[in-house]
Measured scan of single mutants.
Amino acid sequence: EKIKSDFFELLSNHHLDSQSRWSKVKDKVESDPRYKAVDSSSMREDLFKQYIEKIAKNLDSE
């Protein structure tokens, strides 16, 4: 859970929106230790998708 929250924090530093693509974001964040803390690339992508869904819901509710 800490790894997930750290990863979300990392993503939040990059001002993403619901149109952001993992392939582009990954290049910007892959040197960060919070990125490396997530064991697998599929898990990183899953967390990215969860984060994008979360910010999309937040935008819808505003």
Rank of each mutant, 00 (worst) to 15 (best):
I52L: 14
I52D: 04
I55T: 10
S18R: 11
D32L: 00
A56I: 09
K24W: 09
L10R: 00
S12Q: 09
K28F: 09
S20P: 04
K28D: 10
S40N: 13
A56R: 11
S23M: 11
S23T: 10
Y51P: 03
S20H: 05
H14T: 07
E1M: 04
E45I: 06
E1I: 08
L47I: 03
E30W: 08
E30H: 08
I52H: 05
E53Y: 10
D6P: 00
I55R: 10
S5D: 09
D46H: 12
F7P: 00
Q50L: 09
W22Q: 01
E45P: 00
Q50H: 05
Q19V: 06
S23C: 13
A37G: 03
E1G: 06
L47C: 02
F48P: 03
R34L: 00
V25P: 01
M43Q: 14
K26E: 06
E1S: 05
H14N: 07
L10H: 00
D6A: 08
E30I: 05
E62D: 14
D17C: 06
K36H: 09
I55M: 14
E1P: 02
D32Q: 00
H15D: 13
P33Q: 07
L10T: 01
N13Y: 06
K2Y: 03
K24T: 13
I52F: 06
S61G: 15
I52C: 08
E45M: 06
R21P: 07
K26T: 04
D32T: 00
D6Q: 06
F8K: 02
K49G: 08
E45L: 06
D27Q: 12
E53P: 03
I3N: 06
V29N: 00
Q19K: 15
L16F: 08
V25C: 05
K36G: 07
N58P: 14
Y35K: 01
N58S: 12
S5W: 07
S40D: 13
S5P: 02
S18M: 13
L11E: 01
V29L: 14
K36L: 11
N13R: 07
K36R: 11
N58E: 14
K54M: 11
K24E: 15
N58R: 12
R21F: 04
I52A: 05
S40A: 05
E62I: 08
V25R: 02
S41D: 15
K57P: 13
W22Y: 04
L47E: 02
S12E: 13
D60N: 12
D60T: 08
A37C: 06
S12G: 11
W22L: 05
D39S: 14
N13I: 10
R34F: 01
N58I: 07
I55N: 12
D46M: 13
F8P: 00
E45Q: 08
H14W: 11
R21W: 04
K28E: 10
S61A: 12
M43L: 11
D27N: 13
D17K: 03
S18W: 07
D39Q: 14
V29I: 15
I52M: 14
R34I: 02
S40G: 11
H14E: 09
L16E: 03
L16V: 15
E30Y: 06
D32N: 01
D27V: 09
K54Q: 08
F8V: 03
L16Y: 05
F48Y: 09
I55K: 13
D60W: 04
S41Y: 07
F48H: 03
E1R: 04
R21C: 10
L10D: 01
E53H: 06
N58T: 14
Y51R: 02
N58H: 07
H14M: 15
K2R: 09
S18V: 14
K26D: 03
P33M: 07
L11M: 05
R21N: 13
K49P: 00
Q50I: 05
K54F: 10
L10M: 15
D27S: 15
K24I: 15
D39K: 13
E30G: 09
Y51D: 04
E45H: 08
A37N: 06
R34A: 07
I52Q: 09
Q19P: 04
K28Q: 09
K36I: 13
K26G: 03
E62T: 14
D39R: 14
K49M: 09
S31A: 13
Q19T: 15
Q50D: 12
Q19L: 08
S12R: 10
I55G: 10
K54E: 14
K28I: 14
E1Y: 15
V25K: 02
Y35D: 01
F7K: 01
D60G: 13
S41T: 12
S42K: 13
D39W: 06
E45T: 04
K57D: 11
L16H: 03
K49W: 06
D6W: 01
K2E: 10
E53F: 05
D17Y: 03
R21G: 08
Q19C: 13
I55E: 09
N58L: 06
R44T: 03
S20A: 08
V29P: 00
M43P: 02
K57F: 08
K54C: 13
E53V: 09
V25A: 05
S40I: 03
H15Y: 10
D46E: 13
K54R: 12
I3A: 07
L47M: 08
V29T: 04
S41I: 08
L16W: 04
R21M: 12
L11P: 00
D32H: 00
L16G: 01
E45C: 05
A37P: 00
